[in-house]
Amino acid sequence: TIEELSSVNYRLRTLLEIFQSIGTALDEDELLERILDQLFDVFPESGRGFIILRDPDTGMLTPRAVKKAKPDVTDSEERLPISGTIIEYVLERKQAVLSADAMSDDRFPTSQSILDFEMRSVMCAPLMYEDEVLGFILLDTQRIASNYDEEGLTLLAGIANQAALSIANARLHSQLLKRERLEQDLRNARRIQNSFLPTEPPHVGDYEFVDWYGTALEVGGDFYDFIELPGGEVVVVVGDVSGKGITAALMMAQMASNVRFFAGARPQPAELLAKLNQVALSSATDM
């Protein structure tokens, strides 16, 4: 019918507008605020809106964004007006739920939170991404709302699907930025580590020194050095710190510095190694 076509057209147009609005947001907090702003435009009778996300590390459900029609009305931080009963219901079924009048809804007969928070019309939709529940969108009113109906629920479910995709993209973007920063830090660490190594081998009589340095990771614990002393003497040092990566590289930097410091006093090799061993044991105790 014409009414059905008009309804479908409205939903598609609304979904497109919301996708265009939230699709460019790559910061997760900014994205969640945009989603709630758009939802309050689509469902103007809403009194409160929540986006509850599952923490990727702990798995705990945490309210990440909150919007109220009356911002001056504040709730205790210890108890936000969210119905755990409805959240559990949606989590179990992994599908959106509508309650035109939650206070008289037989599905939630024992929910004290619904009574305490005076929740009337409620819609809640899961944020699904590749069969994983990222969280939920929950909207409610303290009076029965005309657009909290099956058509509105279908629209909210569609918005939740788009929102879940945008949240997943924002998290992926954040992970890529962290990885890029880490890789840049490792490249910088490699340049710093290379600065501890000799720039060229020494030229001593008929001796020829050839050196090469490579690590399994960006940085490592192997090191070598040529320390030229007065009188034409050269101390050749080769070391291997146990392990790989940043920890081994830090130990390598410390050891390379200690070698040059103690070698300046021109001790015998055994004495030099004994001093280095003493310092290394002391450092290991402090760590």
Rank of each mutant, 00 (worst) to 15 (best):
M123H: 07
R120N: 06
E118K: 14
I159T: 05
N147I: 10
L115I: 11
L127I: 06
I159N: 06
Q162W: 08
E130D: 14
N147P: 00
D149L: 05
M128P: 13
F117L: 10
I114M: 10
I114E: 00
T154Q: 14
I137G: 01
M123Y: 07
I159K: 01
D116P: 00
Y129Q: 15
N161K: 12
G158F: 05
V122H: 03
I137V: 14
L115Y: 07
I137L: 06
V122E: 09
V133D: 10
Q112N: 10
P126R: 01
S121M: 01
L115F: 06
R120K: 14
N161W: 03
M123P: 12
D149Q: 04
L134N: 13
G152V: 08
L155N: 04
Y129F: 15
Y148A: 12
I137E: 03
T154C: 04
V133G: 02
C124H: 06
S146K: 12
Q142I: 07
T141W: 00
A160I: 05
L138I: 01
L127C: 07
F136L: 09
M128Y: 09
F136K: 02
F136Q: 05
L156R: 04
E150T: 14
M119N: 02
V133Y: 06
V133Q: 13
E151D: 14
I137Q: 01
T141E: 03
S146P: 01
R143F: 11
Y129D: 15
G158S: 11
E151M: 08
I144N: 12
I159Q: 07
L127W: 09
S146R: 13
F136E: 05
S111G: 02
P126K: 05
A125N: 07
A157P: 13
D149S: 09
E132H: 13
L134P: 11
L156W: 00
G135S: 07
I159D: 04
A125I: 03
A145K: 00
L155Y: 10
L156N: 05
L115G: 07
Q112W: 11
L156C: 08
E151A: 13
S146C: 01
D140L: 00
L127M: 06
M119H: 03
D131I: 04
M123A: 11
V133R: 11
A125G: 08
L139T: 03
M128L: 15
L153T: 12
N161S: 14
D116F: 08
D116Y: 08
L139S: 03
R143A: 13
Q142C: 01
E150F: 08
D116M: 10
I144R: 15
L153K: 15
E130K: 15
Q142H: 13
I114S: 04
I137D: 00
V133L: 15
T141M: 02
A157I: 09
Y129N: 14
E150V: 11
M119R: 06
V122P: 00
C124F: 03
E118Y: 05
Q142D: 07
E118S: 14
S121T: 08
Q162S: 12
Y148E: 03
I159S: 02
T154H: 13
V133F: 08
M128D: 14
S111C: 07
Q162L: 13
D131L: 11
L153V: 11
E130I: 09
Q142V: 05
E130M: 09
L138S: 05
T110Q: 12
L155Q: 07
I114T: 08
S113T: 15
Q142A: 04
